[in-house]
Design a protein around this nucleic acid. Sequence first.
DNA 1: TTGGAATGTCAACAAGGCTGACATAAAATG
DNA 2: CATTTTATGTCAGCCTTGTTGACATTCCAA
Lengths: 165, 165
Amino acid sequence: MQNQNRTMGEALLYLTDEQLRQGIEAMFFAYRGFTADPDRILEEKGYGRAHHRAVHFINCAPGTTVNNLLKILGVTKQSLNRVLRTLIEDGLVVVHVGQQDKRERNLFLTDKGRALEQQLSDAQRNRMRAAYRHAGPDAVAGFRTVLEAMMDPEMRRAYLGLRQE
Amino acid sequence: MQNQNRTMGEALLYLTDEQLRQGIEAMFFAYRGFTADPDRILEEKGYGRAHHRAVHFINCAPGTTVNNLLKILGVTKQSLNRVLRTLIEDGLVVVHVGQQDKRERNLFLTDKGRALEQQLSDAQRNRMRAAYRHAGPDAVAGFRTVLEAMMDPEMRRAYLGLRQE
DNA sequence: TTGGAATGTCAACAAGGCTGACATAAAATG
DNA sequence: CATTTTATGTCAGCCTTGTTGACATTCCAA
C-alpha cells in the first residue's frame, strides 16, 4: 500500500519467506536483549520477570485492580497472586480496598516500589534509547507500526488504552 | 532525566521517556502476539517454546552441533538436552556422530521434524506477513534496524551469522 | 599418556505458568 | 430478603523449563 508506484515484483520483495524468517529471528534475539538488563537487576534482588511486569503496569496505572492487571498480563489470578504477595510482603506494593466497590483491591507502588520500577525501566530505557538513537526517528516510527500490527487485537486495545491514560 | 530531551528540539522528540515507555510496552505486547500462534500448535502436541526454538535453529543450520545450539539458545546443556531427548525419542530429530571430531553430535531434522517446523513457522510467518504487509516496506526496514540495534553484540553476531548461511 | 574439550546423564531445585477446589465479602438481581 | 454473581484470596498439586553440581564417556591434542 505504501509503494503503489513501484512494480509488483519490487514492492513485495520484503514479504518473501526469507525476509519473514529473518524478522522472526530478529524478534527472538532482540527480545533477549530487551529483557537482559532488567533480568540482571531482578536476579540480584531475588525477583523475576513476573515481578517486573506487575510493577511496571501498577506504575503505569496506579490504583488498578487485580482483575484489570490479570487481563493485561494474561496470567491466572493464582499466578499473579503469588507475585503480588511477595511484592506486598516486601513493601513494594500497597493494597487499598475499593471505595465504590469494596470487593476490589486497588494496587499502588510504595516509594520503595517506585524506586525499583525506576531502576528497572531506566535500564530498559537506556538500551531502547541507544537503539532508537542509532536507528533514527523514521526507523523508530516503522518499528512501532510493525509491532502494533503484530499484536493480538485485544492486546492492541489494551496497549492503546494504556497510552491514553 | 525525565525531560532533558525536550529542550533539544523536535528532532529528538522520539527519544523522550514517554516514547521509550511506549516502545517497551509495544515490545511486550507484540512478543506475546509473536509467540501466540506457535504456542497454540505446540500445546496440542505436548511441546513448549523450548522445543520450537530447538527445531527452528536445527532447521536453519542442519548438522549444527549441540554446543553451537547452546550458544545460540543461551541455555544450559542439561536444559537443552532434556528437550533434545524428547525430540529424538519422538523421531523429530536425528543425531549423527561428527565425522572429523567424533565427540561432536550433528543434529538434523527428520521429515517429521521438518513437518512440525513448517507448521510452526507457517503460523508465525503468517502473522509476521500480515503485520509487514499492513506496515509497508519502509516501516519493515525501520523495524529491522531497531531490532538489530537492540540485540546484545554477541547475539547480533549470531544473528548476522545465521543470515549468511 | 595425560589433560582438556564435547557430550550425555542423573539428581535436585526454583520460578512461574497452569488447574481445581474452596472461602469470603460485597454487589447485583430476582 | 434470598439468591446469584463477581472480585479476590488461598491451598494443593502439576508441568515446563530454567538452574547447579557431580560424574561418565569419548576422543583430540600436546
